[in-house]
Design a protein around this nucleic acid. Structure first.
Lengths: 363, 363
DNA sequence: ATGAAAGCGCTAACAG
DNA sequence: CTGTTAGCGCTTTCAT
């Protein structure tokens, strides 16, 4: 505690052992809480450690045991509240189990993600939770699985990676939401996602399961209602306020404008609402709006936003639990060749005031 | 790349050396990028490493060098967007410099914070950024500084810890905001903070500089306006929606109710607005509202919220920069005994619609 | 430029 | 229960 600050080298088990007059291994046993030591020796060692201000070197410990009690978390965008919640949940579960979390933010850049995965593996994390960015290349994830250390995918499935995944099942909720829009008389429903236009591709499912699922649910609802789906209203590239504004303008102008807008997440929702307000659109009178992610502010804006609420904390917590389980029982994960295993939690629609009658409404 | 998955032990420098037909040290030099190796040997070693799927063990590397290229970040509440932004900024700067960030969330619990700091130190992080939770005990922070590894305090100063701190200077902004409220005719201004009532204490400055600064700014504005400050309206304990609702009720009822409410952060703001709406309060007609933290949704609620905008990304980035600087030039930090050094960035008021005339307004 | 050998601080296997 | 002796995988003298 009250050490002379003029110490350069930190005390080690050897120092403690010397001071306590025991062998290094004995001191290490007492300090590390393994093996067995007599109460009196333990006492002497503890006292010596205390006097010296000894602190274990976890690096050395990890090197010996091969385990670091650390898990890596690779996320695209930590400042997005959605992933903030997931991070929090994962931290909580990991922490309770005595694990630390190393967080890497990749800004949804594939190259950064690959680097992050590699680096965390090099740092010998015991397992990895990854929110994979949309990309056709998943080599880094397969490589991670090949190390034998457990990997769990959060919020996004990848059929080409032999890892567990935990995500939100949005399809029924999307169907419900879209159904509500259709029932209200809307036919032209725009959907805005931050995914780059290069992913607007038939194999979208490979690359971003959440977006593919949203589109699938919408398509199902249209089919069920016997209404033809307009593919021109799936709008990609809403990655900034300006880009989102431009997409909103595109959706709302032209010969057959959208009468309803759905945003892919709460960040986009904010930009969409801002733009709609700038344009002076009448919500929910002439235009309807809904969003994925039920952000805490959704009930407070005017009109209150109808949203698809996603149990992301549960997803995060389950991810962490599954990861820890695999860490503790090696071989519990999916086989390298086996089909990926997926677990999901259902989303639900929270109906608020932002959906009004569309042009096809009976009056 | 395409390794037989039936390998148990990961390849080491020794394996690579053997395959390349050189000494272990030579292989290590080629792989680690230090010392000097002839181009042809480097070539052979690289090829062998590639063939074996060699990856360096950063743990072992750190153990040898004594540096881990990792910094620890201890935050109270990562799901609060304010700290999400700070985390993002710190990650960005650290990452650009080749450092990783280990994040620990403490839920603002002092004991967890102390544990986290100790553990990160034990893991041999090269430096620490801490957002200290309010507490009279800062022993863990002093201990951290005593290890010689640099520590930077984020968003909150501590005069009893010899560490650099980077925070937001809110005093002028608070003065401006309070002045605006006073000028609008408000005399009874409630201030809600999530700090526990036990910290409602003359030595608040010791324990939470941001809250102390807010109160100081308000006091200055009242004094400047020659209006007596009502100390009964500094309301502590807004740590949950229910608690906040109760405090709002308390402020708005009784013989001399508040006519303006100011919330200490955006999370509280949401709870306050929710409660005000439940109560059917007329904003900004009969009641005014303002908040610290200019959340992205602040312009979109009705009425748009006047807020104190705090440059938290700048604070985070500067924190990281100062920390890295100290890591790279040992001894650059404050002396153990010296006065703590503080750097701050000015906040500013964003005036929107949530402030209206108070009962003292001239008509 | 390369090799041999000695650590870094701890855990672990094996005697006594 | 305790001491001795090896490692873990890498970096780092110190020779050569």
């Amino acid at each position: 505690m009250t050490e002379p600050a003029t110490r350069r080298r930190e005390p080690t088990t050897a120092d403690v052992a010397r001071r306590a007059g025991v062998a290094k291994a004995t001191a290490a046993r007492a300090l590390g809480g393994y093996g067995s030591v007599s109460p009196e020796v333990r006492e002497r060692v503890t006292a010596a450690a205390q006097a010296l201000g000894y602190r274990p070197n976890e690096l050395a410990r990890s090197m010996g045991t091969g385990r670091s009690r650390t898990i890596g978390l690779v996320v695209g965008d930590i400042e997005n509240g959605y992933f903030g919640l997931a991070t929090r949940a994962i931290s909580e579960v990991a922490h309770a189990a005595g694990y630390e979390v190393v967080l890497v933010n990749t800004a949804e850049r594939h190259a950064d993600e690959a680097d992050a995965v590699r680096l965390l593996l090099d740092k010998r994390v015991d397992g990895l939770v990854v929110v994979p960015a949309a990309s056709f290349d998943a080599e880094h994830l397969r490589a991670a699985c090949a190390t034998g250390r457990p990997v769990v995918l959060l919020d996004r499935r990848r059929d080409d990676v032999p890892a567990l995944s935990v995500s939100v099942d949005v399809v029924p909720a999307v169907r419900e939401l879209t159904g509500a829009l259709l029932a209200a008389g809307h036919r032209r429903i725009a959907y805005l996602t931050s995914l780059e236009p290069e992913f607007d591709h038939p194999d979208l499912e490979l690359v971003s399961s959440p977006i593919a699922d949203r589109l699938l649910g919408m398509r199902q609802a249209f089919t069920a209602a016997g209404v033809p789906l307009a593919p021109d209203l799936a709008l990609f590239g809403a990655h900034s306020p300006a880009a989102t504004a431009a997409l909103v303008d595109r959706a709302l102008e032209g010969p057959d404008p959208a009468t309803a807008v759905v945003s892919s997440d709460a960040v986009i929702a904010l930009d969409v609402l801002t733009r709609l307000r700038e344009r002076g659109e009448d919500l929910p009178g002439r235009l309807s709006f809904a969003s994925f992610d039920d952000a805490p502010w959704a009930p407070l804006v005017d009109p209150a936003v109808t949203a698809v609420q996603q149990p992301i904390q549960q997803v995060g917590a389950e991810c962490a639990r599954l990861l820890l389980e695999q860490i503790r029982t090696p071989g519990a994960g999916p086989d390298p060749g086996a089909a990926p295993v997926a677990r999901s939690f259902p989303a639900r629609v929270v109906h608020r005031a932002s959906i009004g009658p569309g042009p096809g409404a009976r009056r």
